[in-house]
Design a protein around this nucleic acid. Structure first.
Lengths: 188, 188
DNA sequence: GTCTATAGTGGGATAGAC
DNA sequence: GTCTATCCCACTATAGAC
C-alpha cells in the first residue's frame, strides 16, 4: 500500500527537504513541484492557502520524523545518560554522511518566519515542544525529579539545536560530538 | 567624530538588523537603502559585489558587536561560573525587552547561506569561532585545563545559540534562563 | 485532480548622467 | 559619491479549460 504515494505526500516530503536545505524564502513553489515530480497544477488544490500551509505541514512532517528518531534512539539504553549520549553521537555520525547537505531540521523556517506568520511559528514551537518532551519523559522514567527532568529536557534540546546550527555552519560535526561528551556531566 | 556617519556605515547597520529579523532572502536591497536613509544610488558604489558583500560585512559588524558584549559581560565576575551565568541571564533579560523582535544574531544568515555562498559561510564560521574563543579564554584564565576549556567553549556557545533559537521561536526567554541555571553543573 | 496561461509584484543588478 | 531608469528574472497566486 506504500506503492501509491499521492501528490500531496510527495509535495510535503520534497518541501520538507528543500525548506531545510535552503530556507523558506529561498525555496520557490516551482522548484518544489518540479523536484517532487508531482503535477504542477496540484499544489493549490492540495494546499488552498498556498505556501504558508505547505510549510506548516512540512514542519509537522519533519517534526514527526525527527521525533521518531529521538524515540527510537532513546530506547536503545535504559540508562538515560548512555541513551541520550548515544543518540547525539548517532546524529553526529549521520551529519557527516548526509545531514551536512540537508541543513538543520525546522531551524531556518523557524528563524525566517517567527515574526511574519504566527501559525508557522506555532508549528515550530509545537515541534520543539515535542522534542524536549521526549527527553524529559526519558529522565522521568529513570527517576529524575519532575522539575529537574523538565528543565533538563529544555536544556538538552537547546544544546542539540545549537550544536546542529554550529556544526552545519562549520561543515563539521565536532560541536555535536562535544555536546554528547558533556551529557554525563550535565545529567549526573 | 562619531557625528559624521557615512552611508556605508548606515547601510551596514541597517542591513545587520534586517538580516537578523527577517533573514537573508527575505530582505531586499530596496528595503535596506530605504530604512537606512542612505542614498539609494550608493549601495553598489560601496559594495561592488552586491548583496553578498553587504551581508558579509553585516555579519562581521554583528559579530564584533556581540563579541564586545560577551567580553564586557565576562569581565564582571572573576569566577567563570558566575561570569558566564550572569552573561546569559543578562542576554535573557535583554531578549524580553528588545531581542525578541530582533531575531538571533547571524543564525538565519548562516542557515540560509551555508550551502550557497562559501565566503558568507566562512564569515559566520569566524564569528562563531570568536564567540567560543572568548568563553575558552575566560576558563583558561581561571585555571581550567586547556583541552577542557576549549571543549567547554564550543559547548557553551552551542547551548546559548540553541537556547536563543528556541527562545525566539517561543517568544519567551525560558530556554535561555534554564541554560544559565545549568552552567554551574556543567562547569563544576 | 490536473493543466496552462497570466496577472501582478518585487527581486538583484547595470548603465550612464550628474 | 550619488541618482534614475531600466532590464531581466523569479516569485506567489488566480482564472478557467479539461
Amino acid at each position: 500500500m506504500r506503492e501509491k504515494e499521492n501528490s500531496k505526500t510527495k509535495l510535503i516530503k520534497t518541501a520538507s527537504l528543500l525548506f531545510q536545505q535552503q530556507g523558506y524564502h529561498a525555496t520557490g513553489l516551482n522548484q518544489i513541484t518540479k523536484e517532487s515530480g508531482a503535477p504542477k497544477g496540484s499544489l493549490y488544490y492540495h494546499f488552498p492557502e498556498g505556501k504558508e500551509q505547505l510549510a506548516i505541514e512540512s514542519v509537522q512532517f519533519t517534526a514527526k520524523f525527527v521525533s521518531e528518531r529521538i524515540e527510537d534512539g532513546l530506547k536503545k539504553f535504559s540508562d538515560p545518560i548512555k541513551a541520550i549520549q548515544n543518540f547525539i553521537v548517532q546524529m553526529a555520525e549521520q551529519f557527516c554522511e548526509e545531514r551536512c547537505k540537508e541543513g538543520v531540521p525546522i531551524a531556518s523556517v523557524a528563524l525566517e518566519t517567527a515574526l511574519i506568520s504566527d501559525s508557522l511559528r506555532q508549528a515550530c514551537q509545537t515541534a520543539y515542544g515535542n522534542f524536549q518532551y521526549l527527553f524529559t519523559e526519558k529522565l522521568l522514567d529513570s527517576g529524575y525529579e519532575e522539575t529537574r527532568a523538565k528543565e533538563l529536557g529544555v536544556v538538552i534540546n537547546s544544546m542539540i539545536e545549537g550544536a546542529f546550527l554550529i556544526s552545519f555552519t562549520l561543515g563539521n560535526n565536532e560541536p555535536l560530538l562535544l555536546v554528547a561528551k558533556q551529557i554525563p556531566v550535565l545529567l549526573q
